[in-house]
Design a protein around this nucleic acid. Structure first.
Lengths: 212, 212
DNA sequence: TAAAAAACCGCATAAATGTGCGGTTGTTAT
DNA sequence: ATAACAACCGCACATTTATGCGGTTTTTTA
């Protein structure tokens, strides 16, 4: 049995969904709300597996609703309801923590499938949205990993890492079994290669570029 | 007309795909390779819209192949071919830059649809994989944004940012129109709040925790 | 095998930092 | 209205850093 909650301001749609869900074996509508505020206040008391949430709501909108709901119950599976298929809003909703989305005129059988998919740990979404989603973290990976490391040697990275952990020259020297002057020398080279002139700048650049 | 390339070591499957693609109007197979090496060396010369790549290849495997192909031609759309539906490998492929994936026994019509979706900027994938993908950057956002900022005030973050940009105390003071002693004071408080004892450590911690 | 790069060591010194102490003023929350 | 906090300012001083110069030895690469 999948326990579903509905947050949708249009009473016709809300009752329609509710009837569909209650009329299907294996599904049950355990809550039905016209706005996020009511939903959020009831959320702690309810046993909900999947929440269907409209994006365009009066008061707290769907996106904000997702964020707040996840703060209250991080494990909650939320499926967004939207009028437009490919909008930036859908993307934002997913970022905020929604698990998938449905277009409002989705046929009932597909709707029930989607609820089930979410319940089982999937995220139903169109391939267009999926592309947007994966491109975001491909960029992250590109920035974080594939970028060149400014020609830093392994030893230099090691020194840089120690710096970022708060070690001073003497401590780095001790932990690497080298002299302070050598540490100094490495750091000099690091500065040259990164084009910086202070520890902080070097560390910041190295972390931001994914070198360490 | 969608120009497709195939990288697949099994000659039966390869020829089957090739025949399917060439036999469908609007699709054309412009290259067919038994391994990544050959594909990668030909890639610069070919006009390819979508590449179908097997994951389990001899020599350079599909995942590595995706990475290298994207280095050569970042705009290339790659669709992975896989035997297993929900594997970590598929997820890795998407991270590496693939645009979607197909299970090998996908019916021809769905296969052609998927190629078209990729060509049009989508990313066909199952909802299970989609969930894995979005959960990754939801975590990123959670780590990057919602995490507490150790109670740092706006001013303190401002100072910290300047530090990470290589400014020294005097330069920070000048750019914020405050005295060096005040900068010193802010940094003192930053150290207290972050439990660190040097610029580098503070900057590293702040960046890694997404505070700045 | 010669050249290049990495890793190592040393000394000197001006400049910058970390940390101790002491304050005032204005805003926000209880 | 009293406390808590942010933001501001000041002084002193030991420690640490940045940067200049000079080297040697080993490993990698052309």
């Amino acid at each position: 049995m999948i326990n579903v909650a509905i947050i949708e301001d249009n009473v016709i749609i809300r009752d329609g969904l509710s009837a569909l869900i209650n009329g299907t074996s294996g599904y049950k509508c355990v809550g039905s709300f016209g706005n996020c505020e009511n939903f959020l206040s009831e959320l702690p008391k309810l046993e909900i597996d999947v929440a269907l949430m409209d994006i365009g709501l009066p008061g707290i909108n769907g996106i904000e609703g997702v964020k707040k709901a996840r703060q209250i119950k991080p494990s909650l599976n939320i499926l967004m309801l939207t009028i437009y298929k490919e909008s930036k809003v859908v993307f934002e909703a997913l970022c905020a923590g929604a698990c998938g989305y449905l277009v409002k005129n989705t046929p009932p059988s597909r709707l029930l499938d989607a609820i089930k998919e979410v319940y089982e740990g999937g995220s139903p979404m169109s391939s267009m949205i999926a592309r947007q989603v994966i491109s975001v973290f491909q960029q992250n990976n590109a920035v974080t990993k594939s970028k060149d490391d400014y020609g830093l040697s392994d030893r230099e990275k090691e020194v840089l890492l120690k710096l970022s952990e708060g070690d001073n020259y003497q401590q780095i020297a001790d932990s690497l079994f080298i002299s302070v002057d050598t540490v100094r020398h490495h750091i000099r080279n690091i500065y040259k290669k990164l084009h910086v002139h202070s520890q902080s700048e070097a560390v910041a650049k190295a972390i931001r570029k994914g070198v360490i």
